[in-house]
Structure formats: structure tokens, C-alpha cells
């Protein structure tokens, strides 16, 4: 009897902890949603629920700035960045993961090093490069600059996934006279599906969230990506930010990411841990 009471107490304590964690992680979202549904003076009172839900903030986001266009920009840039990174990374990861050659380790560490260095360290050089290529205030300029962030880690994560496939896979095919290219396209690509999804998702989220390059290499409202658009929403004066609208915009971009996380959480976690724990 006493034992079960102690156990019950532990249970309660445990679930209390879980509740605290959940509140901690989710409250800011809850507050953003609630605030986005308040308009006028209701926004300035801390009611836990929108008494009179209003959608005006959501329509205003699209009317006051080209937010639809900004979302499209983000989708285009992120998708192109992912496609290009994966294309380049698969062949590099094959070399790193399946072939032993001199200089492999230093080279792999160089790739890893690039993914760690601060973006601001290349800012002026990248600015010059993008201007020279005629890509300033152009979405292609963003894709080019994002490769510096996504390519090294896609190579790294895919290399680790590649290494885990059994060694016999390509041996037989190579002995039978298949080319490396055939080995990649016919043997590895079909097996790499899950790994590509994991890595692609991570690269997509990274590109979708990038701010510094997008802020620096675009000029006009039409060319902005979502993070820049949200960062630059302003009101009548610097001291009167339209919080309802900012929260509405934040909710709009958060919802697809939440869905992505709910659907693909296993894949995302697999990619994250492959890149870090096993590294």
C-alpha cells in the first residue's frame, strides 16, 4: 500500500515535469497564435484567449507587403538549394564513404570545417562575388550563397549514411565491370532514399531559416525571403510595431514547419544524429 503510494507520487511528479517541459517549449507559440487573433486594443491586454477572434491581422500581412511573393521566394530558394546540394553531395559522399584514397581524411575535415565557419567571415567577399556575377537582389544569388552552408553538411551526413551500407554491395558490380557512375545510380541511389530525405529536410530547414545572406544580398520587398520580410515589418514609427501582424506572419510560416516536423520527425532526428553523434 505504502509502496504503491510512493510510486503514485513519483508518477505524478514525473508527469508534472513533462507538463512543465511542454509548457516551456510550446507557450511562445500559443502566445503568438493568441496574439495574432487579437486586433485593436485587445492586443494590449494579456487575456489568455482571444475574446473576439479577428482574422484582420492575417489579411493585413498579405496586403501591407508582398508576403505571398516572399513565401514563394523562400520555397523556390530552399528547394533549389536542396536539389543542388544533394546532387553535388551524393557523388562526393560516394567518394568519401566508399573509396579509400590518400588525403581523404584531411579533405573530409576541410568540408566539416567550412560548415563551421561564421557566415560573416565571407560576407564582403561573397557580396563582391554576387555583384560580379550580376546576382545582387536576385534569388539565384541566394541559392549560390546558401550552398556554402548546406553543401558541407549534406556531404558530411550523406558520407556517414553511405559508410553504413554493407561493403559487398558494389564489390561484385565493380568486378563485373560496372562503372562507378552505374554503381551510384543503380545500387546506391535506390538504397539512399531515406538518407536523402533526412539530409534534404535538414538542408531545406536551414535554407528556409537563413537570414544574414538574405538580408544583405536582397534589396527590394519583392525579392525578400520570409525571415527578412518578418524582420523588416514596421509600423508607423519605430516604437509602434504592428505586433498583431508580426505574430500572424510568424504563425503563417511556423505552421508548415510544424507539419513537416510532425510528419518527418523520425527522418529529421535520424539526420541530426547521424551528423553529430556518429561524427
Amino acid at each position: 500500500m505504502r509502496l504503491s503510494r510512493a510510486r503514485l507520487l513519483r508518477r505524478i511528479l514525473f508527469y508534472l515535469l513533462i507538463t512543465i517541459i511542454l509548457i516551456y517549449t510550446l507557450f511562445p507559440f500559443y502566445w503568438a497564435v493568441v496574439s495574432s487573433l487579437k486586433s485593436g486594443s485587445a492586443l494590449f491586454e494579456a487575456h489568455p484567449l482571444p475574446i473576439d477572434p479577428a482574422w484582420s491581422n492575417y489579411t493585413a500581412v498579405f496586403q501591407e507587403q508582398p508576403f505571398g511573393r516572399n513565401i514563394l521566394n523562400s520555397i523556390l530558394v530552399s528547394t533549389a538549394t536542396v536539389a543542388l546540394s544533394l546532387l553535388l553531395a551524393v557523388t562526393a559522399a560516394y567518394a568519401f564513404g566508399r573509396i579509400s584514397f590518400r588525403g581523404r581524411l584531411p579533405l573530409l575535415l576541410t568540408f566539416l570545417g567550412v560548415s563551421m565557419f561564421p557566415q560573416v567571415a565571407v560576407l564582403s567577399g561573397m557580396f563582391e562575388l554576387i555583384r560580379t556575377l550580376g546576382l545582387y537582389n536576385n534569388l539565384l544569388g541566394l541559392v549560390v550563397s546558401y550552398m556554402i552552408i548546406t553543401l558541407p553538411f549534406t556531404v558530411w551526413v550523406l558520407t556517414i549514411f553511405m559508410r553504413e551500407l554493407p561493403k559487398e554491395l558494389e564489390e561484385a558490380a565493380l568486378v563485373d565491370g560496372a562503372t562507378h557512375w552505374q554503381v551510384i545510380t543503380h545500387i546506391f541511389l535506390p538504397l539512399m532514399g531515406p538518407a536523402l530525405v533526412s539530409t534534404g529536410l535538414l538542408a531545406f530547414i536551414t535554407a528556409w531559416n537563413e537570414f544574414l545572406f538574405a538580408l544583405t544580398f536582397t534589396l527590394t520587398g519583392e525579392m525578400r525571403t520570409v525571415p527578412v520580410a518578418i524582420a523588416l515589418i514596421s509600423g508607423a514609427s519605430a516604437y509602434e510595431l504592428p505586433w498583431g501582424r508580426i505574430m500572424a506572419a510568424s504563425v503563417i510560416v511556423t505552421v508548415p514547419l510544424v507539419l513537416l516536423v510532425l510528419v518527418f520527425q523520425r527522418k529529421i532526428v535520424a539526420g541530426l544524429t547521424a551528423g553529430a553523434v556518429k561524427g
Partner: peptide, 21 residues
């Protein structure tokens, strides 16, 4: 797991704005 992943997945700009508010 999904609940703890969500703060990680959203853009830093969005979390900065939510907390700023």
C-alpha cells in the same frame, strides 16, 4: 519529441519576434 523539435525547426527570426513581443 515533436514538441521539443518545433522550437528548433522554426526560423530564428520568428522565435526572436515571438520573444520580443
Amino acid at each position: 519529441r515533436a514538441a521539443v523539435l518545433i522550437p528548433w525547426a522554426i526560423p530564428t527570426i520568428v522565435s526572436a519576434r515571438m520573444w520580443q513581443w
